[in-house]
Amino acid sequence: MPISTSFILPTTLTLSLSLSCYLIYHHRRLHHSTSTTHRDGTLAAHSIPLDNLETVPTAVFSSGQFFSVYDRAARIVPRNKFPALNHHHKLINHGNKSEGRSEGDLLTLYLRHTLTLFTSLPQAYLIKFLLLPRSARYSFGADYINSLSFVEGDVVCGVYTVLLRTARKVEFGIAAPGGADGVQGRLVVGINPDIDLKGEDQDEEGRVEVYSETAMWRDADSRVVMPLERALGRAMHELAAWWLLERGVEYLQRLD
């Protein structure tokens, strides 16, 4: 017996409305607990410091020849909320470097955890099944991701290649599958274990900042529209980045 459209349409609308409300609620909730920065235009470097993006040519943000989009998300947490990092700090102060987890170890664990979570998101399914060849799908596997140390040259989730690795950050190049000619991008993920919050009282243990930065750019006169230029693309990016940041920080806080 065929299902009446009088039943299908209201049901579809109800589900769509419920999903929209759910996403809006979580977007607002995550925004409330996340420090964010967004800039776009041809002279982004005039409004914010972008020195942390070491593999991006200076001209991209300052020459006026490129249109760029920049997003930063961060969480700042008291250092004593990170047992593993705090334990390592105490060991170093006592001259014992043979135990505990270093900052680089924590960053590796953080990346393994959050990138494995990323593979369950709609963006990952889009990349994996619609934009990449079958031969690249291995880089989405949990076992593969958990084997990585994120050294220069490592590829993860098909489009992210490590260009720079330090103890406190990893800078990924973002490939542009699907024919987005002329678009380049970077993803930077890092942990700052001792940040200075100017104008605010510091507790004895200090603060830790966990952050991610995303930048994409194209020629200023190009007609290509980058994902972060679109309202929906930016909203989905923010929701994913903020959620991964929340889950990643919670994971670090559980490490002993």
Rank of each mutant, 00 (worst) to 15 (best):
T5P: 08
T5L: 15
I8M: 09
S18V: 11
L19M: 13
C21D: 09
H26S: 08
H27G: 07
L30S: 07
D40N: 12
S47M: 07
D51A: 10
A59Y: 04
A59E: 15
F61H: 08
S62H: 06
S62Q: 09
G64A: 08
Q65G: 12
F67A: 02
A74W: 01
K81E: 14
K81S: 15
H87M: 08
H88Q: 11
D105F: 01
L109W: 03
R112A: 04
H113D: 09
T114D: 03
L115K: 01
Y125V: 07
L126F: 13
L126S: 11
K128N: 10
F129Q: 09
S135R: 14
R137S: 08
F140V: 04
A142F: 02
I145R: 00
F150S: 01
E152V: 15
V155M: 07
V156W: 00
C157S: 14
C157K: 00
A167C: 05
G173L: 06
P177Y: 01
R186S: 07
V189F: 03
G190I: 00
G190E: 04
I191Q: 02
P193L: 05
E204N: 07
R207N: 11
R218F: 01
R218V: 09
L232G: 03
A235N: 07
A241W: 00
R247W: 04
E250G: 15
E250T: 06
Q253P: 07
R254D: 11
L255I: 08
